[in-house]
């Protein structure tokens, strides 16, 4: 680690296609032509050292593929990916000690063994001497609030605890770059909040974090910069404040018992993108501009409507707006 690169991640024209050879038809020898799917399409991206970088995109956008390539688990079809200046395809022995990886979900642990045994195993795999490994394991268990259950089998753990253990596992090699793939999926709100606190601590320690998510609030809250990705294509890298603006700009207002005349007036408010009325007479107002939802809300309140609420748009809706307004071509 003598050479230090200011860039934790540097990716250029990175493409990965999966070729799936389809199974033979029963009783026949002829194979159907192979099907190919592009998971990453010429992505270029840099993440400076010390940054918390979000990869935001819906399921199947290619986020996990990028995580796998950066953690040396998957080889790209073309393009270059470097971690702290080392090529992930060739220089695996240089890259691996620098990277900690936490792939989402509950899998990946020895469930019959205890949390401590699992961490000791991984600390050996990350080449730590036994005594240091034991010390580091104890510290991580404490840090992640698992010390009381440290010597119980992982199969008795709740989902949130398993997720914390995964994070401890990712940290066991003291990585400079931590790759977190959908780390909060399936966590209850309290556990997700604790997790965010931890990410902030890790950032304060100077670690670089690459975090994938499809939760815009999470991306806005945690990240220094956010890259939007969809169907394998990079849509752009944004300041998280921009995402905050989208969230409020495309807020939705839902109300019940709105008179028809008032609905007409709402339609005419500037920035209202559309009004939908469902079979029970509930209306959903989509807005597309700063302050629009406030104007709609005050109209409704003035009109005597009391049953109303606002909600943030989903990632898919934001994409629709973005693609619509910028004319992005998303395959």
């Amino acid at each position: 680690m003598t050479e230090s690169s200011p860039l934790a991640v540097a990716v250029a024209d990175l493409t990965r296609t999966f070729v799936r050879s389809r199974s033979r038809l029963p009783g026949r020898l002829k194979r159907r032509p192979p099907e190919s799917r592009t998971a990453l399409d010429a992505i270029t991206l840099t993440v400076p050292s010390g940054e918390v970088h979000g990869l935001l995109g819906p399921n199947g956008a290619g986020k996990t593929t990028l995580c796998k390539i950066l953690s040396t688990v998957l080889i790209p079809t073309s393009g270059i990916a470097k971690v702290f200046g080392h090529d992930v395809v060739v220089s695996t022995t240089r890259v691996r000690p620098l990277v900690g990886v936490v792939l989402g979900g509950e899998r990946g642990l020895y469930t019959r063994l205890t949390a401590r045994q699992n961490l000791m195993y991984w600390s050996a795999l990350y080449r730590q001497p036994t005594s240091e490994g034991a010390e580091r394991t104890a510290k991580l268990l404490e840090r992640l609030g698992l010390e009381e259950r440290a010597d119980e089998r992982v199969e008795t753990f709740s989902r949130g605890m398993k997720q914390r253990l995964h994070l401890a596992r990712g940290l066991v090699g003291n990585p400079r770059l931590l790759i977190l793939d959908e780390p909060t999926v399936g966590l209850d709100p309290a556990a997700a909040r604790d997790f965010r606190g931890l990410v902030r601590q890790l950032r304060a320690e100077g670690r670089t974090i690459l975090l994938t998510t499809h939760d815009m609030t999470e991306a806005e809250e945690l990240c220094d910069r956010v890259t939007l990705i969809d169907s394998g294509k990079l849509l752009g890298t944004e300041d998280p404040r921009t995402i905050g603006e989208w969230l409020s700009a495309w807020e939705r207002v839902t109300a019940e018992g709105v008179p028809a005349e008032l609905i007409d007036r709402i339609r005419k408010v500037e920035g209202v993108a559309g009004v939908e009325i469902d079979s029970e007479g509930r209306i959903t107002v989509e807005t597309a501009g700063d302050g629009t939802s406030a104007a709609v809300l005050s109209l409704l309140v003035d009109g005597g409507v009391t049953s109303l609420s606002t909600s943030r748009p989903s990632l898919e809706e934001v994409y629709l707006h973005l693609i619509g307004s910028r004319g992005l071509n998303v395959g």
């Binding site: 022995t93 691996r96 090699g173």
Partner: peptide, 18 residues
């Protein structure tokens, strides 16, 4: 099947030795 193989590949230790 338990999702550990990829994590093992990502670690700095040679899988054959493990």
């Amino acid at each position: 099947t338990d999702g550990r193989l990829e994590l093992l590949v990502a670690s700095p230790s040679p899988v054959a030795v493990v």
